[in-house]
């Protein structure tokens, strides 16, 4: 593995055939970065790497990340955005995947004032698969998030799965745009898009736009979006068993997040993220 890091970002290269099981934990704190970051991750053929990136800075950040996942390689990338509530976070990620490669991308958005995330994936060769998971929580007035995801299916037998959920409170606003583009004559593609939002306040606003654009005939694609409120029936059920209202709500919020987080298949990353969410998601 080659790793170099400056205040302007990092570059990580994994040699062909090598597997690094322990997550590489990279923190961008107050002293650790400039306002503009450029990160590059290259997984060579048959390699596997797990990265846990954490943003805790209180300055406005713009980061651009490029990921290249070569044949039969696997990148597990977990990002925690927990910046100060006064700072904005803007991220652009470009992912290019070769034959039979897998990218598991997870984005956890806990802090920040105005958050923008754009992810663009090119499934360029046959058998490539990506999973784009996300969980966001917005709790302050005028806090906002905007997730724009695009997956280009350019090769047969490629698969994509977008699954984002969010909890919004007070006068916060979230926007999700998911686009799956199946290019002409790209067959045997499977694509799923889902975005669900839980509003805890009548002032919160969620906009969800999952879109499918398909120019092939032998594909399996589905999408769904919901905007809802806490399940009153479930809340009453828990309270009727002696659990106080605040704890019962906490149970339901944790369960709502768990639905996404449980898809993280790296045990250590799962534990770390699970703790971050449970410490943060408070009713």
């Amino acid at each position: 593995m080659k790793f170099s890091r400056t205040k302007k970002g990092y570059r990580l290269e994994i040699a062909p055939g090598s597997t690094i099981k322990e997550p590489i934990h990279i923190v961008f704190g107050q002293e650790d970065c400039d306002e503009t970051l450029n990160n590059t991750i290259i997984a060579e053929e048959d390699s596997e790497i797990t990265i846990l990136e954490e943003y805790t800075s209180n300055i406005n950040l713009e980061c651009r990340t490029e990921m290249i996942c070569k044949s039969n390689a696997k990148i597990n990338y977990y990002k925690i955005q927990n910046q100060d509530k006064s700072a904005s976070h803007s991220a652009q990620t470009f992912i290019k995947q070769s034959k039979d490669s897998v990218v598991n991308h997870f984005s956890l958005s806990l802090g920040g004032k105005a958050n923008q995330e754009t992810i663009s994936v090119s499934l360029s060769e046959t058998g490539s698969a990506c999973q784009l998971l996300g969980f966001y929580t917005l709790s302050e007035d005028n806090q906002s998030s905007e997730h724009s995801l695009k997956v280009d299916h350019l090769a047969n037998h490629s698969q994509s799965n977008m699954f984002y959920k969010g909890i919004l409170n007070n006068k916060s606003k979230a926007c999700f745009t998911g686009k799956v583009y199946v290019h002409p004559d790209t067959q045997k593609v499977e694509a799923v898009q889902a975005n669900h939002n839980l509003l805890l306040s009548s002032n919160a606003e969620a906009i969800s736009k999952p879109e499918l654009e398909i120019y092939a005939d032998d594909v399996k694609c589905k999408h769904g979006a919901t905007v809802g409120q806490l399940d009153e029936e479930a809340l009453f059920y828990l309270r009727s068993r002696g659990i106080d209202e605040a704890s019962a709500k906490q149970f339901l919020l944790a369960a709502y997040a768990e639905d996404v987080i449980s898809h993280i298949n790296h045990a250590k990353a799962f534990e770390y993220i699970s703790n971050a969410v449970n410490n943060h998601v408070k009713y």
């Binding site: 009453f236 059920y237 309270r239 009727s240 659990i243 149970f251 339901l252």
Partner: peptide, 22 residues
């Protein structure tokens, strides 16, 4: 409701609620 439970009241629901994730 939670105080009623603590005081010893229990309702076995006609339609018990499914709570995914809990």
């Amino acid at each position: 409701p939670e105080e009623r439970a603590a005081q010893g009241l229990f309702l076995a629901f006609q339609y018990p609620v499914e709570i995914p994730g809990v």
